[in-house]
Simulated assay, not measured.
Amino acid sequence: MASFDPKKWLLNSDGAGDQVVKAPAFSLTKVLTIATPLLTIVVGLVGDYMKDKEINWAPSHIVSLALGVLALVAIISAADLIARGVATAATVTADGAARQPASLSTFATPLKASRISVNPNVDVKIAAISSEHPPRFLCVDKKGNATWESETDLNFTPDA
C-alpha cells in the first residue's frame, strides 16, 4: 500500500495523474478545500456566540457573513490557480513554441527534393531551412501544402 505524504500532496509533487499545473508550488486550493467547511462552521458558531451576547443578528447577517467567507475563499483559490499556472509556464515550454523555428533562411530558387517519409515518395520544393540543430526544411508539394521535414525524411535531387 502506498504511503500518503502530505508535504508532497500540498506541493503538487506527488505525481498523481496528469497535472496541468506541474510547478512544485504550494497548493493553497487543496488547503482551502479542507478548510472551507471548517470555516463555515466557525462562522456559524461566531454568529451563535454573538447572538448569546445580545447582539441582534438577523439570519440574513449570518448568511451574508458565511457567503463573504466563501467568496474570499473562491478569490484566494482563483489567485492560487493563476499563480501556479504562471509558475508552470515559466518552467515548461509550450508545445507550439518548441516547434517554431528560432529563425529561418529562405532560398531565392527553391531546392528540389523528394519526401521519403511518405509512401510513395512525393516530389517537393524546399523553400526554407531553419536554424535549429539539426536543421529542418520547409517543403512545399505540388498541391501547395507546406510541411517541416528533417534531413532524414528527404532525398535531395540535383537540378537538371
Rank of each mutant, 00 (worst) to 15 (best):
A87R: 00
F107C: 11
A16N: 10
M1Y: 12
K53L: 15
I126C: 00
A90I: 11
G15W: 05
I55K: 05
L32V: 06
R115T: 07
G144Y: 13
D80V: 01
L72E: 01
I126Q: 00
D159N: 09
S117Q: 08
A35Q: 03
R99C: 10
E54I: 07
E132W: 09
I76W: 00
D159R: 10
L39R: 03
G44K: 01
R136Q: 15
T93Q: 13
L45P: 00
G85A: 08
N119F: 13
A94P: 02
V140M: 11
T93V: 11
S103T: 14
S103R: 06
D159H: 06
I129W: 05
N121F: 10
L32Y: 03
L38F: 15
P135G: 08
A78I: 10
F156R: 03
P110C: 13
I62F: 00
L38K: 03
T88A: 08
T91P: 01
F4G: 03
W9H: 09
A16E: 15
A160F: 15
S114I: 11
P37I: 14
D95Q: 15
T109G: 01
T33C: 12
A89Q: 06
A83L: 13
I41R: 05
A98T: 11
H61K: 07
I126W: 00
D52L: 13
V124C: 01
N155T: 08
N145W: 07
C139D: 04
T33S: 09
T40K: 04
P24G: 11
L72K: 02
A2G: 10
V124F: 01
A16P: 03
A94D: 15
L104C: 10
L11E: 04
G17Q: 02
L38N: 02
V124E: 00
K142H: 09
T109V: 11
K7D: 10
I82Y: 03
